[in-house]
Amino acid sequence: MSNVENGMSKAYKNAVTALLFQLADDELLYAFRASEWLGLAPHIEEDVASSSIAQDSMGHAVMYYKLLEDLGVGSEDDLAHLRPANERKNSILTERVNGEGYYMETPQYDWAYHVVRSYFYTQAKKAKVDSLCQSSYEPLVEAAMKIRMELYYHRLHWETWFKQLLSSTDVAKEKMQQAIELVMEDFGDMFSFGKDKQAIEENNLLCQEEALKASWKASIAPVFAKLQIEVPEIPETPHLNGRNGEHTKDLESALATLSEVYRIDPAAGW
C-alpha cells in the first residue's frame, strides 16, 4: 500500500487532518455559543454586529470542514454534527456555556464573559491565522488569507468592548475581572496541539505552540498596558486538553443541540 496519496504522504495527511479538526471544531463551537446570544445582546445594534461575527466564524468552520471533506475524511455535515464529544478537538474555552440556563428558556448569560472569551479567542485566532498564511499546506494558506480579512473587524469589535467595559463603572470592572479569571482557567489548551504537536510542528503546518503564545501576548499587551492591568498567565498545563478529546459536560449538551435535527436522518437532504 502506498503511503503517498495525492502527492501527500500518509503522515503529512494525518498531520493536516489533525490540525484541521482543531481549527474547525474551535470555530464551530465558538460560533454555536455566539449564536445562542442572538436576540439577547445588551442592545439591538450589538445584536446585529455580534451576530455578524458569529456568522463569519460559522463560515470559517465551514471552510475548514470542507478542507477535511476534500481530504476524504467525511462529509462536512457529518464531521460537524455526528462526531461524539471524545473525538472533538476544540479548546475547552469554546465549548463553555454562556452562563446559567438553557437558551430555549430564560438564560442568565454573562455579557462580560462573552466579551472576554471573544476578545481572547479572536486574538488567539489571529495568531494562528497569521501563521497559517505561511503554512506548508496550500489550501490552508488560501483559507487563512480569506479569514484574516474578516478577523480585522472582529478584533476591533471585541477590543472596543474590552476596553470600554474595563474603563467604566465598578460593576463592569468587577464583572470583567471575574470573566478574565474564568476565561484564563480554560486557556491552557488554546495553543496546544495535543498529541499531534510534533506532527503539526515538524510539517510546518503552523508555527510552534510557544511562538503562538508569544504572538498572542504581544498582541494584547498594549491594550492591557493602557488599562493598567497585568497580562494574564496562560496555564502551563491545561486541566483538560480538548485537543486530545478531553471535554466538559458543556460540550455534550452543545453537540446534542446543534445536531438534534440533523440526527433525525443524517442521510436525508435538509
Partner: peptide, 22 residues
Amino acid sequence: WVPKAPSLRRKLGIMAKVQDEM
C-alpha cells in the same frame, strides 16, 4: 432553531436571516 439548524449551510442561512430581522 438557529443552533439546531440541520446543516452547516442552513446554520449560516438562518443566522443571517434572524440577524436581518434584528
